[in-house]
């Protein structure tokens, strides 16, 4: 099918874009990479009266290190930065290895060449990688409207199925990924039927150890097991204060699979199979994250 007609705007600056979104209110949709919105429009699942195309707003496309005076700062990513640019960024590979590791799992190169970081996060698809990764990394999202700006932590941003804290007229403009603490390790794993397909289950893990190798903090998040990215708080508690052992990994994986997630059944996988995958992938991801944390003393 083909999209229904719409009014089309191509602002050249962020201020112009925000003014257009304010003017058209709920009738207007911002168009980022279009890799989710355009298929929805092709099938007329979405029929926005107006599109505000952000692809000419060059100021929203960047990856840079923010120096905050206290050593290495956050990595700031403009919302319109293409996923492919993040995948290829040396800065991201160095400062946010979890993000770098997850990027190749996002659909196919043809999609990542157009798809944007901000677009995927604002779309908040429960099977998307970036929301889960950003929740694990405790990223902060800068949202702007014609009347102001605010910063929303990832933990308060994802509200449910395709729903976020963004208000009408508000645009996600920047994602700030904080630096990892010393002795931290991360890992991303997902299982899909074919490379690039939607994951049946995906997991992102961040663990921080003390000088004696005990876990001081652990954040484990999942995709494709709920109506948004899911933070595994029970598994995190299991790990607190503990040193790595096979029993510990099994206990954390068991807590994640039985207490942290309530996965759906669909044509791709049953809930029971997804639970099983949560357990297996959690154990593997944690083992990898611990190993990387131990090899990362600075």
């Amino acid at each position: 099918m083909k999209p229904a007609p719409f009014d089309y705007f191509t602002p050249a600056t962020l201020d112009e874009a925000l003014a257009l979104l304010a003017e058209h209110g709920a009738d207007a949709k911002p168009l980022a990479g279009g890799q989710s919105l355009i298929p929805a429009m092709n099938f007329r699942l979405a029929r926005p009266a107006a599109l505000v195309d952000l692809n000419r707003v060059g100021e929203l496309s960047y990856i840079r290190s923010e120096r905050d005076g206290r050593g290495g700062g956050a990595t700031a990513i403009g919302a319109m930065t293409r996923q492919r640019a993040v995948e290829r960024s040396e800065l991201v590979a160095r400062a946010a290895p979890l993000l770098a590791e997850a990027m190749p799992s996002i659909a196919h190169p043809q999609i990542r060449n157009r798809g944007t970081v901000g677009g995927s996060i604002a779309h908040a698809d429960p099977s998307a990688e970036l929301p889960a990764v950003m929740l694990a990394l405790e990223a902060r999202f800068r949202a702007r409207s014609a009347t102001g700006e605010r910063s929303v932590p990832a933990s308060e941003f994802f509200k449910g199925l395709l729903e976020t804290a963004l208000q009408p007229g508000e645009l996600l403009v920047e994602i700030a990924v904080p630096p990892l603490l010393p002795r931290s390790g991360t890992a991303f794993l997902e299982l899909a039927r074919r490379h690039g397909d939607y994951a049946l289950v995906g997991v992102a893990a961040v663990v921080t150890l003390d000088a004696r190798g005990r876990c001081t903090a652990a954040r484990i998040t999942f995709l494709s097991v709920g109506d948004g990215p899911v933070l595994a708080t029970e598994a995190g508690k299991t790990l607190a204060g503990q040193a790595l052992s096979e029993e510990l990994l099994r206990a954390a994986a068991d807590a994640a699979a039985t207490r942290d997630v309530d996965p759906p059944s669909d044509i791709h996988a049953s809930a029971a199979y997804r639970r099983q995958l949560v357990a297996v992938l959690t154990r593997r991801a944690l083992a990898r994250a611990f190993e990387r944390a131990e090899g990362n003393p600075s």
Binding site: G34, Q35, I38, Q110, I111, N113, R114
Partner: peptide, 8 residues
């Protein structure tokens, strides 16, 4: 490489 059906 891009999908030409996912661009106007």
């Amino acid at each position: 490489a891009v999908r030409s059906c996912l661009m106007f």
